[in-house]
Amino acid sequence: MLKIGITGQNGFVGNHLYNTLGLFPDEFERVDFDKSFFENQQQLDAFVKQCDVIVHLAAMNRHESQEVIYATNLDLVEKLVSSLERTQSKPHLLFSSSSQEERDNLYGKSKKEGRELFVNWAGRNETKFTGLIIPNVFGPFGKPNYNSFVATFCHKLTHNEIPTIDVDGEVKLIYVGELVQEIISQIRTGNSESELIISHTSTHKVSEVLAKLNYYKQTYFDKGEIPVLDTTFDLNLFNTFRCYFDIQNHYPVKFVQHTDPRGAFVEVIRLGVGGQVSFSTTVPGITRGNHYHTRKIERFAVIKGKALIQLRKIGTDEVFNFYLDGDEPAYVDMPIWYTHNIKNIGDEDLYTNFWINEPYNPQDADTYFVEV
């Protein structure tokens, strides 16, 4: 079993990598890292000595001063190299550099010079190093105004703000989940490559991305309709958008209920995509679920009885509780990377409709069981 440490494990890419490695408990053991280790030689050395693999992701992306970015990023590299030298450790080291290496800015310069320092360390110590040249990364939980223009747009559209475009250029993009899979692939193969260019998976003008996000806002955020998702990029962008909701205040969303002497009619979901619709009854006191998905879109719609739906983002402790009652039919959608359940808290059977955007496949279920 490989022991893997991630500097910057609580950052955007680091958190996704950390959580994804956790899906393979028989293959990888995660060595926890905290940014305070960089200020404590003893703790940094203890971390380094444990690791078979270190993925160095810790870095400063944005600051008012380019000089501060440059100095900070090189300082982190130098501290890690010094620790490796002191402890005589020889892990496989992977470093996240950037396609900005060749641009005329100090962030790109800090990445290029940092990679060169690691190359020299690996050469002196005859150990493995992989320098990843990474394009623009987007995905769930990135910080607006910091990690990506996609994060900024998503946050603004879901918080009553209007995004603006500074420069409408073409951007080469990779989804964070795709990047994480590439990093894990490099860990598994164990190859040494000082300059490994990670291919982007899509190219879009900034205005094209904003147009898609505006479409998601109008169809999904405002109306609850699952939009047309023609490509893998569309699915990844939509799942990214969904993770910027203030879910505490957005859910549960009440359905429009039409009644007449015959009874009531409720439209549960409008689809621009296919998927699978299910129906369940749950006896009082029983809980279903306690699992999460990394790509699937899912809706729970309560049409009769009383239910408690709970969500918790993986890696956090905060639990969101939503109380639904069939007398006022409503739904809650499940963001990716949120474990969720539904419990019958009433005295009669609970009736629930479930929709998910892809039929269940036991060979690729994308369903991971974790208690909320």
Rank of each mutant, 00 (worst) to 15 (best):
G190Y: 09
S278V: 08
H258S: 08
Y216N: 04
E193G: 07
P335M: 09
N160C: 13
Q41E: 06
D222M: 06
T87A: 00
Y18C: 05
T219N: 13
F28I: 02
P261V: 08
Y107V: 00
W337E: 11
S185T: 07
G5H: 01
E64G: 15
C154I: 09
F369W: 01
E182R: 07
S199H: 11
V68E: 08
G274C: 09
G14N: 03
Q88I: 09
R103W: 13
V176T: 06
E182Y: 08
E193C: 13
I309C: 04
H293L: 09
E182H: 10
N344D: 09
E318I: 03
E67Y: 14
F233D: 11
V253D: 06
I197C: 12
T189L: 14
D349H: 01
L237E: 09
N10G: 12
Y338S: 03
K172V: 04
I162K: 14
Q43F: 06
E113Q: 15
K90N: 02
F149W: 10
Q43S: 08
R299D: 00
D168S: 13
L179C: 05
Y146C: 12
L271T: 01
A46M: 11
I69L: 12
A301L: 01
G274W: 02
T219S: 14
F47H: 08
Y338G: 08
D246S: 11
G11D: 02
A46P: 05
D26G: 07
G274K: 05
N120A: 13
T231A: 04
T72C: 02
E39D: 08
A365F: 15
Q9G: 01
E161Y: 10
A71R: 15
I342P: 12
V253A: 12
G315M: 01
Q42I: 03
V273C: 15
A122H: 10
F255V: 06
Q186H: 11
A301N: 03
N40Q: 07
K112N: 11
H159W: 11
N353L: 07
T203R: 14
E170D: 13
D75R: 14
L350S: 01
H258M: 13
I197L: 14
G11I: 04
T130S: 10
E193N: 15
H258Q: 09
A307R: 00
Y70G: 00
L84I: 05
T240W: 11
G108E: 00
N145G: 10
Y215I: 03
N160M: 11
T352C: 07
A71N: 11
V228G: 04
I314M: 15
T281C: 05
E371R: 14
T20F: 12
N40E: 10
E126W: 11
E170H: 03
T219E: 14
D34R: 13
V209C: 11
D32W: 10
F28N: 00
F33H: 05
D45E: 14
L117R: 15
K156E: 14
N136S: 12
G224P: 04
N214D: 06
L44K: 01
L117D: 13
V137Q: 13
G108N: 04
E116I: 04
G11F: 03
